[in-house]
Design a binder for these strands. Structure first.
Lengths: 241, 241
DNA sequence: TCAAAAGTGTTGTGGCTACACCCATGC
DNA sequence: GCATGGGTGTAGCCACAACACTTTTGA
């Protein structure tokens, strides 16, 4: 593998010099939840080729920057949000994925609370929220990234309480159920859903009601991160639903 | 994010020129299974700094090479094996992870059938198999990579039939159980294990017996990839054990 | 008073866990 | 004939799916 001569010390420096460098980018698949459907944040590409086409938000990783930091930077620039749930999706590393320049991309996906974000900023960047079921055509391999992200989201959401990341701090159980119905693309039974969610003992009922979607109103709940942490530390192998 | 001037067309070429390039490497976490324990393939680093220390097998990704291909190339050079189960683990992209040079690493893990591989090649490369419970100290962030790979292996093995990748084509049920006991780090009940494995209908009993580990001998089985494919295509959400 | 969403219990089933003994064979 | 690992069946329990009606309240 390394073809150095026997007996001579080969330093990392010698070795690295013969090697190829390339661009490293990160693309962000940013999910939000609004009025009953899962949304994806897209923007119009500002550079040619493919200028004006819809694409994911991306950026190049700088030399002195962690890969994860790069993605958080992009997300904050565009939405103004910090401390967002964000996770690595996958590396897109095909040699020919970007025409002209060798560039690998580390896709990361984020879940954000739509009500918290600064809509102005998003507009400034030529960005727009799309229903995940009505996406436009995307540049390069971004469509594949979105498909992969949706799959991973489904998978993860079964074992980790991701639903809360997409809702405001206070939410109703029907709202939460709605989030999961959208993620899993199927209807859930309200009785079973409520039972299961409450059984884990990680959401707390408040006194207030939300009357925005019914006359009777639904009680608000809050996620209790501490209780959740304790649960999983106990090794509770926690299937959310 | 992109700081081009309004109104002017900015090409990808213009844009890319201002950006940083870096080294992209891949490190392989290579698992094998032998005499009742899970093994990891390590080799002695041949370049300074840290020359002579144990490390994972890695390589730089070439400009005209897919990231996945790079890992497969390394694996084949060292073990002589092709068509091995291999999957992306995670990106290690901290700015300071490699002293001196900015280099991100895409870790990938592989499962190989120890009996098939060419032991000579492994020796040539200064490589050695270690029991995963008795690993030496490793360079850089390689210990973290191994921990992460073990976690992922555990997780994946629950939902996908990975155990077969570590065994020869023909294997006995006690052997298979042993693989899973080693991966999950706990003992399994032989009656329940057998029942579950057979219930999926993806392994086929042969007439032959293996007598290498008991006088009575145990029947050999074979994994039936077609049946497995059909099962998961039917949406059978398949928890292996 | 009625429409619309919130909230509540029970029952059957299937899958998991736990558990103990006989079988085949080589020495 | 005995030691060693291979192979089998059952019973209790729990988690899940399926399913229908009452409550609240604004209009």
């Amino acid at each position: 593998m390394y073809e150095e001569k026997e007996g001579l010390e080969v330093t990392a420096e010698d070795l690295y010099k013969q090697k190829d460098k390339m661009y490293v980018a990160t693309d962000c698949i940013i999910f939000g939840f609004d009025s009953g459907s899962l949304k994806l944040l897209l923007f119009r590409r500002r550079v040619s080729p493919l200028e004006g086409n819809w694409s994911l938000i991306g950026s190049f990783v700088k030399l002195n920057e962690d890969v994860g930091t790069a993605a958080k930077r992009v997300l904050e620039e565009i939405t103004g949000l910090k401390d967002v749930y964000m996770e690595e999706l996958k590396v897109y590393g095909a040699a020919d994925r970007d025409p002209g320049f060798r560039c690998i991309s580390i896709a990361q996906y984020a879940l954000i609370r739509l009500n918290e974000y600064d809509r102005e900023l998003v507009k400034e960047f030529g960005a727009e929220w799309f229903d995940v079921n009505e996406l436009p055509e995307l540049v390069l391999d971004h469509e594949q990234m979105v498909r992969d992200a949706l799959d991973k989201l489904k998978q993860k959401a079964r074992l980790q309480p991701l639903g809360f990341e997409l809702l405001p701090e206070k939410f109703t159980i029907p709202q939460l159920q709605n989030v999961y119905e959208v993620i899993f693309q199927k209807e859930l039974d309200p009785r079973n859903f409520r039972k299961k969610v409450l059984s884990h003992n990680v959401i707390v009922k408040l006194e207030e009601k939300d009357k925005s979607s019914s006359k009777r109103g639904a009680f608000l709940y809050q996620f209790d991160k501490d209780r959740y942490q304790k649960l999983i530390q106990k090794g509770n192998d926690f299937e959310v639903w």
